[in-house]
Design a protein around this nucleic acid. Structure first.
Lengths: 480, 480
DNA sequence: ATGGATTTGTCCGTATGTATG
DNA sequence: TCATACATACGGACAAATCCA
C-alpha cells in the first residue's frame, strides 16, 4: 500500500477541502491508480494530524463526484477513470482572443451623430420613474419576488389595453396582450404560432428586417409584398401561397410612408378571404409630428387576424425591457399551449411592469409621449429645414412627418457607401437607406441616393452646423 | 353637391376632431361616395359656423390617413375604398370571452404546498438589493438609459466569470458569457447556433424538458442518451448521429443524481472525438446540502465544446430576469454573427445588471448563496426525516442531497395521478416524477410510484404536519 | 377667346384657454 | 404665483385653378 502524497500546508481554506483537492489531484495526475485502496479514514487522519471529521468529509465529497467509491467495511477505492483524462487539463486560458468588441460598444464618437438608434432618452421622466419604482419596492416587493403571470402583470396589461385604445385605436382585451422583454423573443413566439399557416411570410419593400430575419430563422421563406416604395400588391399575395404579411402601416421603414385607408381595407379583406394573418409593426406609431397619430390597422377590424406589435424601448428607454404583442382571439389558445409546451417564463421584471403600470395609470406616460412628440417635432423640423437649405439645389427631404429620422434624397455621383465613409471621416454619422431594399442592384443604379438622417441623438443646437458640415464634405459628389 | 351631415354638438373634444370623425364616418358608412367632392374648407367652415382652421386640420388628417385626397386649387375628393368596407365595422367588442385565466394566476391555495417552483424567495437580500439598486439609479442612471452591450454589461460578466470559477469551477473569460432575460430565449439562440452540428439532440432520461422542447421547436429530433435512471450511454450516442447532448451533471432532474467523474470524462472524450457539443444545465448547481457543490463539467475541459447554462431566477429571485450562457470559444464568432443577423437586443435591464454586479462584487451574493444553502439544507433534512418517519414502512426518500425538492418513492396501488388528486382534495400539493421520464408506460407498470416533494414554498414548521397529513390521506393506497 | 372676378388649397401670424414646472 | 409652452382656433395673404360675362 502506497501512501498518498497528501500534506497539509498552512492555508486559510478548510482542512477537508485541502485533503479533497490533494487526493483529487493525485487521482487526476495518475499518482493513484484505479481500484487502489485509500488509507482508511482513521489512518489518514493520524498521518495528517487532524481529526477524522475532515477526512471523512473529503472522502464523501470525492465519492459524490465519483472519484472514489466506498466498499462498506473494506475501505475507499479509487474509481476507474478513462485514460484520456490528461488531455483535458485545466488550462486556465484566460488570454484575450482576437475577438473585437467594437460591435458591442457604442463608444465611437462623432462630432455630429445623426444615428437612428440614438434617441433622446435623456428626456425619460427619471424622477417620476424613480419615485414610482421605489414605491413599488416599498409596498409590493414581497409579493413580486415570486413568479407572476407568465403573460405579464394583469394590471399593466389592463392599463396598456386602455392606452392602446385611446392613443392608437387598438381594440383589445387584456387577455390578448402578451408581455415580453425583447422584440425578437416575442416575434419568435409568434413565428412558432404561425408555423402551420403558411411556409412563407411577405414583407414590405423596403422594411426593417427584424420580422423577416426572425421568421427566416424559424424556417419561413420571405418574399416582398410590394414593388419598391409602393403599396401592398394584393394580386401578388394571391399568386403566391403566402398567408402571413408583415407591415408597418403607420410608419413604414425607413421612408415613413403611411398606409392609406383603402390599402388597409384591401389588406384586411385579403386576410379575411384567405384566412391570412397580418403582423402590424407599430413601433413608434405614437410619434407623428403632423396632425394626430394615424390609428392602428388593428382597430379597423378587431376581430380580424391582426397581430399588433409594440414596445416601450423607443418611447421610454431600453432599460425598461418591456415589449408586447396583441394577439387576435384565434391565437390565444395556441399561445397558451405553446407556453406550456416550451415552458417559458415571463422575461420582463414584475417590479418594472408594476412601476410602468403606475406611470401609465397616473398619466405620466401619456404626458411623456406628448413631451417626446413635441421635442421630436421641433428637432425634426429643425433638421428638415437645415437640410433643405443646404441641399435644396440637389435633392429633397422626404416625408418628415414621423419617427426618429428623415430621408435625404440626393442626386450624387458616388455610391452611398462612399459618401457615408466620407462623412464618417469628417466626423459625421449618417446611414444608408438602400440596405433596407430588396433589390440592392436597383438601388445602385438609382441616380438618387438616399440617406437616413436621425435627429434623436444629436443636440438641437448642433443640427444646423452638422447639416452645413455635411454639405461641405459631400460637395464633390453632388450633382447640382 | 350634397351636404355632408356634419354638425357640431356641445363637446369637450376639439372641433377639428369632431369634423374629422363625422366625415370619416360618412365615408365609412357609404354616405359619401368615391370621387365625390367635399365642401371646400371655407364653405364647410361657414356652414359649421367655425373658422377655416379646424376644417383644414380635419381635412389634413383625413388626407394623411388616405380617406380623401387633395386636388390643388380644385377641392378635396373622397378616395376609392374597397366595397367590402361595411364588413369591417368598428365593433368595439370589449365583451368578455369565455377564456379562463386559471393558467395565469397562481392563486390556488393549499394548506400544505410542496410545489417545486415555490422557492423561499423571501430570504432574498431585499435591503441590500434595494440599497444597491438606488445607488445605481443615483449614480449611473443617465448612462444606463441608452442601449448597452447586447451581450450583457461587461462588469457583470467579469464578476460572473470570477464567481463561476470560485464556486462552480467554471473556467471562462467574460467574452464567453451571454446575458439574457429568459432561459428559453438563450436556449433558442443556442439551438440556432448548433443547427449545423446535428439534426438531433440527446437528453437524459429523466430530465427537465426545457432544453428538449426548445430544440424540438427549432426542428431538432430528441432522443434519450440514457436508460431510465442510468448514466449516459456513450455507445448509444455513437450509434446515432447525434452530436449534441444536454445533461445536468451536478443535479439531474428530478432525482438529483450526480454524474460521476468517469462518466463526465467519457462524455468529454466523446465530445472531443466526435466533435460533439455538451450543454451543461447547472440550474441550482450551487445548492448542495451534503459536502461541497460538485464542480461543473465545464471546468474539467475549458477548451472543450461545453455550453454552460445558468441563471439567477432560482437562487435570487425571478424578478431579476438575468440568465446566462457560457459559450465555448468555437461558438463566439457564430454568436456574434447570429446577433447581427437576428438583430436582437439585450433583454435584461442594464440597471439590474449593474446592481447585481455590485451585489456580487461586495460579497452579498455569495453570502446569500451560503444562507440559502443552509436554509434549504435544514428544510431538506426536516422534510426527509418527516417523510422517512411517515412512510418508512412503504417507501423511501431518495437522494435528499440537493435542489429544491426530494423524491418520495412509494409502494402503492393507485396511479400517481390519482394520489396527487387525492392529496389536492386534502389541501396538499405534490407533483409526479413520472412526467419527466421518456417511457410513460414503464412508469405506469412500476410498482413504486415516485413523487416530487418540494420544500421551497412551505414554512419549516408546517413540514412535519404536512407529511403526517399526507400519510393520512394516502393511507388507503399504500402497500405496507 | 379672353380677362377679370371668384373660388380653391395652402401657408402664416396671432389670440386664447389650459396645462406644466 | 408666475412664466412658459402647447393645443386649438381665428382670420388674412398668396397663387393657382376655375368660372363667367
Amino acid at each position: 500500500m502506497k501512501n498518498s502524497t497528501v500534506s497539509i500546508p498552512f492555508s486559510k481554506s478548510p482542512v477537508y477541502l485541502t485533503v479533497y483537492e490533494a487526493i483529487k489531484q493525485d487521482i487526476v495526475g495518475g499518482r493513484l491508480y484505479a481500484n487502489e485502496r485509500l488509507p482508511s479514514i482513521r489512518e489518514q487522519a493520524r498521518q495528517l494530524c487532524v481529526s477524522t471529521t475532515p477526512v471523512e468529509t473529503a472522502y464523501q465529497q470525492l465519492m459524490a463526484e465519483g472519484f472514489i467509491e466506498s466498499r462498506p467495511r473494506q475501505g475507499y477505492y479509487v474509481a476507474t477513470l478513462p485514460d484520456s483524462y490528461s488531455r483535458f487539463t485545466m488550462s486556465a486560458s484566460k488570454t484575450e482572443s482576437g475577438l473585437s468588441e467594437k460591435d458591442c460598444s457604442t463608444a465611437e464618437t462623432y462630432a455630429y451623430d445623426f444615428h437612428l438608434a440614438k434617441n433622446d432618452f435623456a428626456s425619460f421622466p427619471v424622477s417620476h420613474w424613480k419615485r414610482l419604482l421605489m414605491q413599488t419596492l416599498r409596498e409590493e416587493y414581497e409579493e413580486l419576488l415570486f413568479y407572476g403571470d407568465p403573460q405579464g402583470e394583469a394590471g399593466l396589461r389592463e392599463e396598456l389595453a386602455a392606452y392602446l385604445y385611446r392613443i392608437r385605436g387598438v381594440v383589445c382585451r387584456k387577455e390578448q396582450i402578451v408581455i415580453g422583454a425583447e422584440q425578437h423573443l416575442l416575434l419568435h413566439y409568434l413565428a412558432i404560432l404561425l408555423k402551420g399557416i403558411s411556409p412563407a411570410v411577405a414583407v414590405e419593400d423596403p422594411c426593417y428586417p427584424l420580422i423577416a430575419r426572425t421568421f427566416q430563422a424559424e424556417g419561413f421563406a420571405v418574399l416582398t409584398a410590394t414593388e419598391a416604395d409602393k403599396g401592398i400588391d394584393i394580386s401578388r399575395l394571391l399568386q403566391s401561397s403566402v398567408r402571413i404579411v408583415a407591415v408597418a402601416p403607420s410608419h413604414q421603414f425607413p421612408g415613413g410612408r403611411v398606409m392609406p385607408i383603402n390599402e388597409r381595407m384591401e389588406l384586411l379583406k385579403w386576410a379575411k378571404e384567405q384566412e391570412g394573418y397580418i403582423i402590424e409593426d407599430d413601433y413608434g406609431g405614437e410619434l407623428r409630428y403632423v396632425g394626430q397619430p394615424v390609428p392602428a390597422l388593428q382597430g379597423l377590424a378587431p376581430d380580424a387576424n391582426v397581430i399588433y406589435v409594440g414596445g416601450f424601448s423607443q418611447i421610454l428607454a431600453p432599460d425598461i425591457c418591456i415589449h408586447y404583442l396583441v394577439l387576435p382571439e384565434s391565437l390565444l389558445a395556441p399561445y397558451q399551449q405553446l407556453r406550456r409546451r416550451l415552458l417559458f417564463e415571463q422575461s420582463s421584471s414584475r417590479v418594472y411592469q408594476r412601476t410602468l403600470e403606475k406611470l401609465m395609470k397616473q398619466g405620466y406616460f401619456e404626458k411623456h409621449v406628448r413631451k417626446m412628440r413635441s421635442l421630436y417635432r421641433r428637432k425634426n423640423q429643425e433638421l428638415a429645414e437645415a437640410l433643405q437649405i443646404q441641399f435644396h439645389d440637389c435633392g429633397d427631404v422626404l416625408n418628415p412627418h414621423a419617427g426618429f429620422h428623415l430621408i435625404l434624397s440626393l442626386r450624387a455621383t458616388a455610391s452611398e457607401q462612399e459618401m457615408i465613409q466620407a462623412a464618417k471621416s469628417g466626423g459625421i454619422r449618417v446611414a444608408s437607406a438602400s440596405a433596407f431594399y430588396a433589390d440592392q442592384a436597383a438601388c445602385e443604379r438609382r441616380k438618387r441616393k438616399r440617406f437616413m438622417i436621425g435627429f434623436g441623438g444629436i443636440a438641437g443646437q448642433r443640427i444646423e452646423e452638422g447639416a452645413a458640415q455635411l454639405r461641405q464634405i459631400w460637395e464633390p459628389y453632388l450633382q447640382v
